[in-house]
Amino acid sequence: MIAAAGPHPVIPDFGPVSRCVQDNGFFCTDWFTANWDSVFWPALVQHVRLTVMAVGIGFVLAFAAALLAHFKGWLERPVGGFTAFLYTIPPLALFELLVPGTGVSVLTVEIALVAYTLMVLFKNTLTGLREVPPDVRRVGEGMGLTRRQILVRIELPLAIPSILSGLRIATVTTISTVEIAAFIIDQGLGSPILQGLQSPFNTQFVAAGALAVALALAADGLIVLVGRLLTPWTHARRAV
């Protein structure tokens, strides 16, 4: 008799499973690739979308507030204090606080996410605008640049490194906070992580967790790259 080389025995209802899945290995590549289209890719896209929206809106608000505070110094304390207060609220508590008003929705999540970005974005933008050396500003004024020209031509470009470092922190922390948002909405990489934690099966939360880390690193790297392109003067080498 020749042993038939056939597929693994199929156990009804569980689909075809590999040895790795049967033994509940730490990470099963076959299961990960089989579920990429249905689970991981959609979760990754949602995660990116929630993050970009939160950081985008947060940046617009914080940037506008920082510009105002740059011209009206007295605004710095109240705005800075308020954004710092928001930052201290634990994410889950903030989600729960918002649910009665805005429901179990993306809106709830976004409000909270935006709130967390404000402090660092506001602070870094304002610091960047103020870091312009006094003699540079004085010469600009003495040359006959208007206040607006000093802002646009001098202060904003020189603030770019500080603004971008704020964006890096805000983006990376938002990416990790979006994972917690899975307690409220079934979106983002937090969903497979939560589900994975509730079952003994490893691959699901290991994969989702690794994707979240990879996403954070990629986003951080992207901002650094954009920063280098926007600020050629910071790495111009001294010609010998």
Binding site: P133, V136, G142, G144, I154
Partner: peptide
């Protein structure tokens, strides 16, 4: 503003705009 654009101003710290090239600095006014 107009007055200052008709007066050259040089200080000890020079105050070149660090984010502009030499040409851009000179071209400012």
């Amino acid at each position: 503003t107009g007055l200052r654009r008709r007066i050259g101003y040089v200080i000890q710290q020079i105050g070149l705009f660090p984010h502009m090239t030499i040409e851009e600095n000179v071209a400012t006014v």
